[in-house]
Design a protein around this nucleic acid. Structure first.
Lengths: 304, 304
DNA sequence: AGATTTGATAAGTTTGTCTTATCAATAGGC
DNA sequence: GCCTATTGATAAGACAAACTTATCAAATCT
């Protein structure tokens, strides 16, 4: 049994006339007759009662007509669905992010994507950069907003969205709080609060490296899991820290952010994905991000 | 797109290995490869990402896998449904009857049919013999319990179930009520109550003919639509009648049934159907009636 | 580096689907 | 009642397609 048999059968069953049906189906009448006979033999039951003047459906034929029409409809639906998925208009997309730098531009991005691709079911997952890597391996996420990757993930592709300067952060009561700028070595004697290394490898290692370059090894007092906790600790005078400027979005009160001078290399925010996996909805999302690029820096509320 | 493409696609999509899938599908690997390529071209989108060592589904492929499996399942369901309908195990069956003679054996028959063919949806319709003919023409009924047909319906096939003697019927207060048997001409002077001719042509014309043979033309006073009404009128001393013995099932009180002597030819009860229409469920019903034939006469509560 | 696995490609065969030509049966017209 | 038109089935041959075997190229594993 092939779809051709179903198409031919439905043609004959609706016309109830082999010759007319053959014309509509663009085949010769004998071809149609033999195909119907083949179908009947395959099913093991006659579908039509034929006389030279009249063609009627058997009970089996009537039942099969419903089924055949349904199957052909579904084949058409399948074809259209494939086209929609391939165009990225329909599908599944899981976007992963971590809080601070993207918390202001992501909602707008998601709104625009939803408007443009309403049939894509979009999920958002907050994951720290390291967890994003594991999630990519498990094929649980399609796009990640993340920090530069540690080596060993050559299969992931990355694209820089913007860069963030590093700022020193301290309690507003701290003696250095009022300064326009500070040199990193001025923090040499201070206790430090840094994000837990397991949660933010890149950031942790970068800050340590910066301090080293500035000629000291920071005294790390606390390693919270969340950036919000880190800021709370800084506000509580438990120590100072060096953070990307996007972190300002999380907290402005009771803490002071001071630019570093000399300013170290800024830390990039990346968009990453697995080009080895196919997901047209993801590609559509990436296109949208690229189009929206100019706005994003602004929406991220970074100082120019 | 043909079902073959779907079968092959599902094979490859589940194995994710063309060679192994080809083995399971009993085709050569190149044949499988080209068929998949054909399918992809037909759909206008790649379904697999192939490297020489790894085969993966695209997003479109994953969507199509769901659809293809569904379509193949439905094709199998269609095939099975046709087989069931052709065997009469599934389908629609409308049985038509008129009240008196079958009111006792029909319920049992229906129960047995339902038990044997639970997937056949059986409808019962009470229709007088003449309406049954019109219903056959409109393809509204599949089987009819009826009286001998007036000529002009050669396309209907009939089978006799049993015959009923004619009985005279009169009010129990009637002078002839106590008799063992009467001769029809003894009713010559009586007013008659007969079923309306439009509702029961065969019966009406038969009774008139019987009276003629007995040498008189009956004085027809009333022509009710329903046999129950006829019996009520007889009980009310509005007249006498001649009815098939099955009518006793409708009413025993206040009326008396007296056999005729000489006994006229009995009137048959027939089963009729349109052999030009196919309905295996109907054929199954007919077989059941034939099997149950010996019981039916008894269940109809006819005097032996 | 060599061996092995695996999908694609090429050439040729086979299968089966299609077309044209024709027939047989039925219904309707004259 | 005969003739004609319509219609589905059948037969023969043409054509298209799907299939097989043989081979290659790329990639992984030893």
């Amino acid at each position: 049994m092939e779809l051709r048999h179903l198409r031919y059968f439905v043609g004959v069953a609706t016309e109830l006339n082999f010759s007319k049906a053959a014309e509509k189906l663009l085949v010769s009448q004998p071809a149609l007759s033999t195909q119907i006979v083949d179908l009947e033999e395959d099913l093991g039951a006659p579908l039509f009662i034929r006389s030279t003047r009249q063609v009627r459906l058997t009970a089996a034929g009537e039942a099969f007509l419903e089924e055949a029409e349904d199957i052909l409809r579904r084949a058409e639906v399948a074809r259209q669905r494939v086209a929609r998925v391939a165009r990225g208009e329909e599908g599944e997309l899981t976007v992963s992010f971590f809080a601070a730098p993207i918390m202001f531009f992501l909602p707008e991005l998601v709104r625009r994507f939803r408007a443009a691709y309403p049939a894509v079911s979009l999920r958002l997952r907050e994951l720290t950069p390291d967890r994003q890597l594991a999630a990519f391996d498990r094929n649980e996420i399609d796009v990640g907003f993340t920090r530069p990757l540690p080596p060993g993930h050559p299969h992931l592709e990355c694209e820089q969205l913007f860069e963030e300067r590093f700022l020193a952060v301290m309690a507003e009561t701290h003696p250095l709080a009022g300064r326009d700028r500070i040199s990193l070595d001025e923090l040499a004697g201070e206790p430090f609060v840094l994000m837990d290394r397991a949660v933010a490898v890149t950031l942790y290692d970068l800050v340590i490296a910066l301090c080293r370059e500035a000629g000291f090894s920071p005294l790390v007092e606390h390693t919270p899991d969340l950036m919000a906790s880190l800021l709370m600790m800084v506000a509580a005078e438990q120590g100072v820290s060096v953070v990307p400027e996007g972190v300002r979005n999380l907290r402005d009160r009771q803490v002071a952010y001071v630019p570093l001078d000399p300013s170290p290399d800024p830390i990039p925010l990346l968009l990453s994905w697995d080009p080895g996996r196919d997901n047209p909805a993801r590609d559509a999302f990436l296109r949208l991000v690229r189009e929206g690029g100019p706005d994003i820096r602004q929406q991220a509320r970074l100082a120019e």
